[in-house]
């Protein structure tokens, strides 16, 4: 197998190769045409190959061909894939501290802000839960909006409205008085089209990527309600097997790609999707007045309090963690304006 490259080559005719090529399998769940593959994974893999003088070669397995989306972190841990990209929240409770970056009530003006907050926050907090793999970078969808079949202008409109949501988002919507309905994203299009649910909550990208603009008419902007955190991580043994120089070269590429591509990857998509949904699909854009938005934020505050309490119970400093996220969010909302 891959673990004994020397023994396999020794059997063959002696090669002049001074560098041993290491092939790394990368698993993610996006389609092969998705920007995550085309604009991030492919160029990043190429940059790493170049930076390591062709020594590290990354082969991408998009679209869950190697691992199912919710098994990717675990799969990297067990060496099924060498590198994996997926959502932290697919492993519920596996990353208690990182939940802070997805909490409602913290405003992120853009994906770049949310990604930078998360990446800096993780470096600052250095939580134990991500130490079992080599975390290479994180990225986020950034803020999510409510897209719906009926206009949502205030809490009254939201009351009892069936909205597709799972996990933390379901809790958030419940706090706002809506009726969350849990179903996979793959069922959402049909369900919206037939009216089983009346709305969905998520990054605007979904409107175009999942074509949900075809089955909804209104878009309420709620930059304080939603965020999803993705990891790009590598198997620790594989990482440790690389020599320090190679590691340094890769880390340099990682930082460059985080700043230049990953952090704002969703902004570009969200902007495009928003333009498409409004200009071509005729969706109506709804912005909440400041006082209305504040009412929403107040209503979801208990979810933050609950997070702090749970953290304290598990022996973390809940308030400090929450504060880190909030302070960084304030800082970068201003900085990236």
């Amino acid at each position: 197998g891959k673990t004994s490259p020397t023994s396999t080559t020794s059997k063959e005719a002696p090669k002049k190769s001074q560098t041993q090529t290491i092939e790394l399998r990368l698993a993610h769940f996006w389609p092969s045409t998705h920007p995550a593959e085309v604009e991030l994974v492919q160029p990043w893999a190429k940059a790493i190959e170049e930076a390591t003088g062709g020594q590290v070669k990354i082969v991408s397995y998009p679209n869950q061909t190697l691992l199912q989306a919710d098994s990717i972190y675990d799969g990297v841990l067990n060496g099924i894939a060498d590198i994996g990209i997926s959502c932290f929240s697919y492993t519920r409770n596996g990353f208690p501290v990182l939940e802070v970056f997805e909490l409602p009530g913290i405003t992120y003006e853009s994906s770049r802000v949310a990604s930078t907050v998360a990446w800096e926050g993780i470096k600052e907090l250095n939580p134990k839960e991500v130490q079992d793999t080599k975390l290479m970078m994180v990225l986020t969808t950034g803020p999510g909006d409510i897209y719906s079949k009926v206009p949502v202008r205030n809490l009254q409109d939201l009351k009892g409205l069936e909205i597709r949501a799972t996990g933390l988002s379901a809790k958030t919507l419940q706090a706002l008085g809506a009726t969350p309905v849990a179903m996979p994203q793959s069922d959402a299009y049909e369900s919206l089209s037939k009216g089983v649910v009346k709305a969905n909550l998520g990054p605007v990208e979904v409107l175009k990527g999942w074509r949900q603009a075809e089955v909804t008419q209104y878009l309420t902007q709620t930059p304080f309600l939603y965020n999803t955190l993705f990891f790009v991580t590598m198997n620790l043994d594989k990482w440790n097997s690389l020599d320090p120089e190679t590691q340094k070269a890769i880390e340099k590429v990682n930082e460059k790609f985080f700043k230049e591509v990953a952090a704002g990857l969703w902004d570009k998509q969200n902007d495009e999707a928003l333009k498409w949904a409004v200009d071509e699909k005729g969706m109506e854009l709804i912005q909440l007045p400041a006082d209305e938005a504040q009412r929403w934020i107040d209503l979801v505050k208990p979810i933050q309090d609950d997070f702090v309490k749970r953290m304290d119970k598990q022996g973390f400093e809940g308030a400090k963690i929450l504060n880190t996220a909030k302070t960084l969010a304030d800082k970068y909302n201003k900085e990236f304006k």
Partner: peptide, 15 residues
Amino acid sequence: ALLSSASASFSMVAK
């Protein structure tokens, strides 16, 4: 297992 490792493959099967 032959293309990766036995432990990775067992983990894959279980999942």
